[in-house]
Design a protein around this nucleic acid. Structure first.
Lengths: 240, 240
DNA sequence: AAAAATAATTTGTTTTATATAAAATTTATG
DNA sequence: CATAAATTTTATATAAAACAAATTATTTTT
């Protein structure tokens, strides 16, 4: 039975909150991600199970725990949402993950596709002072090496007006600012195309048959599959 | 039942070695430290139990596990020593701990007495590339902010010819290079005396009654207790 | 609206890591 | 050598995470 005072106005983000286990933190991260990918803003048990590489029964059990800690809104057989403090926690973890990725890339010369794995470990280090100092040391970066926005200390996420290569207007200059997929396989494929954060390009046309797109960079034009194009985020820029 | 091939010439420091748990790593670190503090180079179950804040029965159980992994030389009821691969592991953990302390102090402006706690977490991050890059980023430091030597990538420890303030010759210039005790209480007491790594001083005399010593720095002379003096390491230097 | 399919939960176990008290055993000491 | 001290064994305990099988709820199909 919790002795913690009832939250004020729904806010439970008290400093006295007990530390989460590594697995709990990973669940929050997964739910956050799925929630944002889903449009409805809600997540199912099966989705979580698949993402966490586990079975639904295990997920249900964890949801009960997260619910007891008031990190999610949960009713049996209903869809799941993060609570306000759950979102706050998830954003802190995301913040740590992306700051560490930035550190590894900017300071230790890790390549784009090497940062993720190590950041998965570093994101679970608990020290407020550490992460705020790291942020300052890095110059308060707004985006990580993948172009993903880094929540600030208050958990505010910089907005991005990025769109995928599938949705961007044709024949206008745009610059790659982020990728939706951070898997090694994807990042390495991008390297084969000479694509990375900061590269500018134009989408010339889209094939009606398979939705692949023709892309023009500094070098010769080439085709990207629908799947690949959908995972590349760009913003319009003035100059090529 | 282990399927790992028998070790060659006692060396089991294979790269394929399974990762240790956090607790196992902490045991190795403790045994390493006790072993070096003990002169005999051997460690007892009770000592370990006290240092790890646990009971002897728990220690015995862990020793069995560490022995199975060939990290210690262990026979029932006998004293304990790290094996060669145990030493190698301990040195790697010590290396990580001290490199992270250096990072926190040099790059993130953590004070002397703040670095230890966070480094205790960071030392358990597993990534060879991370630690070698960090080492390079820091300029391959030989000593951490407490003045303790940092093992290099091969596990070689820089030798230190430091002696404690109790043993140093009187009336010669010497410089503080390390402390034996890293507790917050001790470090904070040193601050009260204006003492830290790099400070130069002379030991003027030792009281026969309580072994306290009279110390001369740039400011007024003052007394240090035997206990405090024994935890401060210095090397002789040319200039005051 | 009933039947079938799908999704989620409960129940009963399992595993792993760590820890303990109490009893038994070995070693050390006076 | 008798006793004290140290260590080990035995028998449990707990917590976190996981899963299979059975059950229950919800959704979809007919």
């Amino acid at each position: 039975m919790s002795l913690v005072a009832k939250s004020l106005g729904g806010f439970v983000n008290l400093p006295s909150m007990q530390a989460l286990t590594l697995t709990e933190e990973n669940y929050l991260k997964s739910i956050y991600t799925l929630q944002h990918r889903n449009a409805t803003g809600e997540v199912s048990v099966n989705e979580i199970a698949e993402r966490m590489q586990t079975k639904p029964a295990t997920v249900t059990d964890m949801l009960r725990k997260l619910s007891e800690k008031e990190l999610i809104h949960y009713e049996k057989y209903k869809k799941i949402q993060l609570s306000e403090s759950g979102i706050a926690q998830a954003l802190q973890i995301l913040r740590k993950h992306r700051l560490w990725e930035t550190f590894l890339h900017d300071k230790l010369q890790f390549s784009w596709d090497e940062v993720h794995e190590v950041a998965e470990q570093l994101e679970h280090i608990h020290s407020k002072k550490l992460i705020e100092s790291l942020d300052a040391f890095l110059g308060f970066p707004k985006y990580d090496p993948h172009g993903d926005p880094i929540p600030n200390a208050k958990g505010e996420m910089p907005v991005s007006r990025a769109v995928t290569l599938l949705n961007v207007e044709h024949d206008i200059n745009c610059q790659i600012v982020a990728v939706k997929d951070s898997s090694t396989a994807f990042l390495q494929q991008l390297e084969r195309f000479g694509l990375q954060i900061g590269v500018t390009l134009q989408v010339k046309e889209q094939m009606a048959y398979d939705n692949s797109i023709l892309v023009q960079t500094k070098s010769d034009p080439f085709f990207l599959s629908e799947k690949t194009a959908d995972n590349i985020l760009v913003i319009p820029v003035a100059e090529l």
